[in-house]
Amino acid sequence: MLRTESTKINLMRPLGQPALACAGYRWRENYYSHQRRGGYNIGVRIIEDFLARTNVGRCHDFRETADVISKNAFKLYLGVTPTVTNWSPAGDEFSLQLDSNPLAEFVELPDNHTGLSYSSLLCGVLRGALEMVQMAVDVRIVQDTLQGDLQTELRLRFLRRIEESMPAGEE
């Protein structure tokens, strides 16, 4: 990968994605759960790295969070700035639109796996990172360039705030 940011991208890229995609029986379910779990584990650590690098404080609302994810986090780790768009009326759901997806830049899906959501790793990363800052979210891919869409679109839905747990043995 000929990018100046390649070390950061490698951080986001688990080993053996193609190998995994070739694995036989029920590979697609395995692929998704593996990607999401792997992404989650990246997310819970990358958030600490992110806070240390950027020194941003706690966000006041979900809109601010969306801005930080797109303008700071994606920019820092993937070198792209997705567009924040398609807010739901209640303000608890939005989309991140990526014109180019660095994770899938040199990827072509084989003919027998055309419906594969290749980048589900990103969903796991976002979920893990946001969970660490007390936000439970649901993330899914709704558009994917690998499947002929014009752009890649991730949909984030705010589920609830995770309250800080009381110390053990206190009422």
Binding site: V44, R45, E48, D49, L51, A52, R53, N55
Partner: peptide, 20 residues
């Protein structure tokens, strides 16, 4: 803040052998 960003993050978070 520096203790967090230069020591905790560098030697614990970035160390895959350290559980968090």
């Amino acid at each position: 803040q520096r203790a967090y960003s230069t020591i905790y993050v560098d030697f614990v978070v970035r160390n895959p052998l350290c559980s968090l």
